[in-house]
Amino acid sequence: MIWVSWRRQRAQLITLLGVLLVGAAAVVLLRSNMIGAIESLQLTGCVAQTGPECADADAADRFRAAWTNPLHLGQAAILLLPALIGVFLGAPLFARELEQGTHVLAFTQSVSRTRWMVSKLVVALVPAVVVLIALQHLVSWWLSAAGVLGPRNSGSFHFLNFGVEHVSPVAYAVFAFALGTFVGAVSRRTLVAMTAGLGVFTVARFALSDLVGHLVPPQRVEAALGEDLKVYQDGSLVTGRGWLDTSGRVVPDDRADALNLACKRSVTEAGTAKSQEEYLACLPESGLATTYADFVPESLAWQVHLVDAAIFGGLAVLLLVGTALVLRRQS
């Protein structure tokens, strides 16, 4: 049965292998070129950390101007690959059989529908995931060669960085694939499955990207009035912010806004030179003692990745079960 599925998927699998080879060659070439550029600009020391020892800020700017776009493209490829797996491997998997009526051949042999389905899924999905992981690690290897000079500088929670790290790409790919197979089994039209699958995947990806951060228990920091919170600069994922009153309770946003505005007004009406100090004195009097932020530190990004993978993986399992049910009822 595996042979049958392999033979039916041969064209796609060869294409996948081609994507892997071309992708790997491109990454290896680009990386070695980039390392050459780093060395010629004498930025080798700046890869690990920026700071005073990276004396030549101009060289770093020139490096970024030349290499930020290629590095972002590498990340975009890993972000895009799950969608492509869903569109070109998931969507046609059953839709094409149903469209051409060839499922009848398999359904009237002694192999069970479930085994037929599972073997097709495995033969299509496993190589795709392997290629995706390989390319993900290649791009990651390239990104780490640029270090803080590259996109990694914007922190693990940046949209581009988060989507290409840890288990997230695999989870997106499995979800996109399952979505494609499900829409294909229901619609029985390859083109419908490809377009509708891509649309739903894109919407789900954007809709859920904000949600995952809120599902990890955050830590809270407070700052006295006039002080800045470090979490906005150190790459943490800030999931909530606001004001606390003198006894440490959260002040509702609309109330805090009203109080804040009232203080600002009183200060502007007074019009004195010490307006900033008066403003800071006004706030605790009206009940706004400190500001706070809820955040997930960058070191706990793996937790967010696991939550992300659980959500997309769970959806994928539901979609595959749905596909199986649809195919069982298929005539």
Partner: peptide, 22 residues
Amino acid sequence: AQNRSLYRDLTVRELVRACAAM
């Protein structure tokens, strides 16, 4: 089946092998 429902991109030999496997 009325539409013959065979895998059109396979050769006859491959189709026989596929049906044997199923």
